[in-house]
């Protein structure tokens, strides 16, 4: 068989030289990909555990909303209520949300420190919200009902609980995703202070 003879190396020509560079392109691409893989493996955030979808509304005016009261005897929430000249917190919570229970003491602590906390109850029934506040404490000023998450979507919030820091003009200045743990309290207070 003729094709079993080892191929003789052709003489070097200018075209062959140029071709040689092209031949290294696959390796170059592979190295770039390896770099991205390593980056993703050690610094990436697409894994579900690490990922948090941040609201792009930080820096924007609170969107237009007019929410009915979530519990009887407590006012609902309108956009105008969030632009009163004073910075405040807007807490997105739900009675069926377990981490919301975890953050309840921290919210109480913030309220005791003189912070006004407005709230939006996501997909909740009045009796459930009432029971939740009875059991885990009630740090809230106004509570608006958001039965179909429409206000939550307007805020760019992707879960419960989330807490937004709103300045006196009704501009969102900070978003805290997930429950507020004791170690997060100073950071929230700081954001409120900066919003002044």
């Amino acid at each position: 068989m003729t094709d079993e003879a080892p191929m003789a190396a052709p003489t070097e020509t200018p075209t062959a030289k140029k071709k040689h560079l092209v031949l290294w392109v696959p390796l170059a691409f592979a190295v770039i990909f390896f770099g991205f893989f390593a980056y993703a493996l050690y610094f990436g955030t697409d894994s579900p555990q690490q990922r948090a979808i941040e609201s792009q509304m930080v820096g924007e005016q609170v969107p237009e909303m007019d929410l009915d009261p979530a519990v009887p005897g407590r006012p609902g929430l309108r956009t105008a209520d969030l632009a009163t000249g004073e910075p405040k917190l807007l807490n997105v919570f739900a009675s069926w949300c377990v981490p919301c229970i975890t953050e309840a003491p921290q919210l109480m602590q913030l309220q005791n420190a003189g912070v006004t906390i407005e709230a939006i109850a996501i997909r909740d029934r009045p009796q459930d919200v009432y029971g939740f506040l009875q059991r885990w404490g009630d740090p809230f000023n106004r509570i608006g009902a958001d039965p179909n998450s429409q206000a939550q979507l307007a805020l760019g919030s992707s879960g419960v609980p989330e807490t937004f820091v709103i300045d006196g003009n009704g501009v969102i200045v900070h978003q805290h995703i997930g429950e507020i743990r004791p170690e997060n309290v100073p950071e929230i207070l700081n954001a409120l202070e900066n919003a002044r």
Binding site: P48, N148, S149, Q150, S158
Partner: peptide, 23 residues
Amino acid sequence: CLVCQGQSIADSDAEMASDMRAL
């Protein structure tokens, strides 16, 4: 879908996906 593992809101049973479909 905001709360799913790589699904569109058309293919998810999550409540948030439902609310987005409604929207």
